[in-house]
């Protein structure tokens, strides 16, 4: 391994990490603005023009608050919980292709940290690991509401992971690869997977709402039943970590949805733009397109949150096990049959 490679990857990782944090920060602002718009209010508008500095003020507040660790809690695990939640949220970005390879001078730089040939499964693994942060934090708080919330989060995640995996299988039947890079390259121009897998996309999207604990599936944080949910006992930046992790998860799952189903950095007319902008700037334009898609999905997450009321717990489980899983299996069978027929003739 040469030093140039390491430096190149290091810069890429640092940039992606920075962008994820900034997006998570401004997602809190966006969430409040979207909520305000949907409820016909103004939203935060005191700090800076249009309240644009509000996330900074919130961040400073989070850092400055007194840190309380309950005496009956398991101290070590109480600290590990939020850290793990944030870690699992951040490492998902490693396999997402952020743009087509960029040419600077005579050097070709892939805008992806690592193209492992099991990229889709890696994302899946990271998602399934994310629940540990919530579970450990909720248990270590030694508070029955936190514990109940942690257990809800775990059962919800396990249930929806199945439907999510099944919806991806139908997609993989068509792409014949697990590498995210290849999946994106196959969707060149207008050939987005959502056109061939609309049902699969719908299931995947509903499941990602459940996996990120967002409304209408935010039962682990259900205030009316569980006070604050798994982070009832948390204060200061540890609480901040949990909230941050939620927004980063939202960002990552938006990126995954855009990559798997909405063509990633592909857009109609990209060949024309490639000749127009040259090999250095065209990939960056593609990246901007990808981010536009991601922002749309983040907005969609918020839109749904402020529109649809929270499910009841048995409704959630019924939807997952009796609705989405059979639907996903039917989707696999239909996809398989159609592929077999097409290949035959």
């Amino acid at each position: 391994m040469d030093t140039g490679f390491i430096i190149e990857k290091f810069i890429l990782v640092a940039v992606i990490f920075g962008i994820s944090l900034v997006i998570a920060m401004y997602s809190t602002y966006a969430e409040r603005k979207v909520a305000a718009y949907l409820q016909d209010r103004l939203g935060p508008d005191r700090a800076g023009p249009f309240g644009i500095l509000q996330p900074l003020a919130d961040g400073v507040k989070m850092f400055m608050k007194e840190e309380i660790i309950p005496t009956t809690s398991n101290k070590w695990l109480f600290i590990v919980g939020p850290g793990l939640a944030l870690l699992c949220a951040c490492i998902g970005t490693a396999v997402i292709p952020w743009g087509s390879p960029m040419v600077i001078g005579d050097k070709v730089i892939p805008l992806q940290v690592s193209d492992i040939n099991v990229g889709v499964l890696y994302i899946f693994g990271v998602v399934s690991l994310g629940v540990y942060g919530v579970m450990i934090g909720g248990w270590a708080s030694n508070n029955k509401y936190s514990l109940l919330s942690a257990i809800r989060a775990a059962s919800q995640n396990i249930s929806y992971e199945i439907a999510m995996g099944l919806s991806i299988i139908a997609l993989l039947l068509m792409t014949n690869t697990l590498s995210l890079k290849t999946i994106v390259e196959q969707q060149h121009g207008w050939h987005w997977n959502v056109l061939y897998q609309p049902l699969g996309f719908l299931i995947f999207m509903v499941c990602s709402f459940a996996e990120t604990n967002r409304a209408p599936f935010d039962l682990p944080e259900c205030e009316t039943e569980l006070i604050g949910g798994y982070h009832t006992e948390y204060s200061s930046m540890k609480l901040g970590f949990y909230l941050f992790a939620e927004y980063i998860n939202m960002f990552v799952s938006s990126a995954v949805m855009a990559t798997l189903y909405f063509g990633g950095y592909n857009y109609p007319g990209m060949d024309y733009m490639a000749t127009l902008l040259g090999p250095t700037w065209a990939p960056l334009f593609g990246t901007a397109i990808l981010f536009a898609k991601i922002f749309f999905f983040i907005f969609f997450f918020m839109w749904v949150r402020w529109t649809i009321p929270r499910f009841r717990y048995d409704q959630l489980m019924n939807l997952g096990w009796k609705g989405l899983i059979p639907l996903a299996i039917a989707n696999i069978i239909i996809t398989g049959v159609v592929i077999a027929i097409i290949e035959k003739f």
């Binding site: 499964l121 899946f124 693994g125 540990y132 579970m135 775990a154 396990i158 992971e161």
Partner: peptide, 15 residues
């Protein structure tokens, strides 16, 4: 191994 053992079975154990 990551998904099944770490992500699913151990979650159930912990649960």
């Amino acid at each position: 191994n990551f998904i099944v053992y770490m992500g699913a079975i151990m979650v159930l154990f912990l649960f």
